[in-house]
Amino acid sequence: MLELRLVQGSLLKKVLEAIKELVTDANFDCSATGFSLQAMDSSHVALVALLLRSEGFEHYRCDRNLSMGMNLGNVSKMLRCAGSDDIITIKADDGSDTVTFMFESPNQDKIADFEMKLMDIDSEHLGIPDAEYQAIVRMPSGEFARICKDLSSIGDTVIISVTKEGVKFSTAGDIGTANIVCRQNKTVDKPEEATVIEMQEPVSLTFALRYLNSFTKATPLSETVSISLSSDLPVVVEYKIADMGYVRYYLAPKIEE
């Protein structure tokens, strides 16, 4: 038996909006640790990892590890029926081929049940070891989204370069070129407005902007984003979900032939 009650139901709505463009079908894994998901896009270029820790739920019951295959478009359709202030409870019985989403209005005067069919999904799980990154950039998530959107109107790929001077986003296309440099800026009124660069050594990698733009669908989840770069690894773009966990996106770089 599985029963997860999330008072801040809007978080779950935002999580679905953040991942449904990248991934069509995925297995949600439930264990004592929390509610998690790992899935790749259809071309295996990008991967999304979600964790909502059990402590972040008002009530969390998961009698045994459970993997529930869902079409994310369908989950999103269901969750869009929840009000933004609603409490969301996810329920499933052992061996059942359905999951139930229950939406309660804050003053309990409206309670809705949406039952959705589960599906069998053959998904591959990749082992992602902890890594030391050559550079980690933390910046306002809205700023990162703006940069990705602006550059994708000029080119298809972005070169992200981190040096002592700052982080540079560069692109080139038929109509011209663009460079955006963000310098470290810790002297701001609010910490979430800071750009902080932790650099062990300079690093420069090339990525497809299409995927980065898709990652920025997670912007409503967090005021800040961290971008971890190493020359021999996929970039990790992480949005922390307050007190609960994270959505992490991994994107393979372009590789020199």
Partner: peptide, 14 residues
């Protein structure tokens, strides 16, 4: 010239 890498270039199935 560069080609697009995939997750399999970096991580192993488990």
């Amino acid at each position: 010239d560069s080609i697009q890498g995939t997750m399999y270039n970096f991580y192993e199935k488990c």
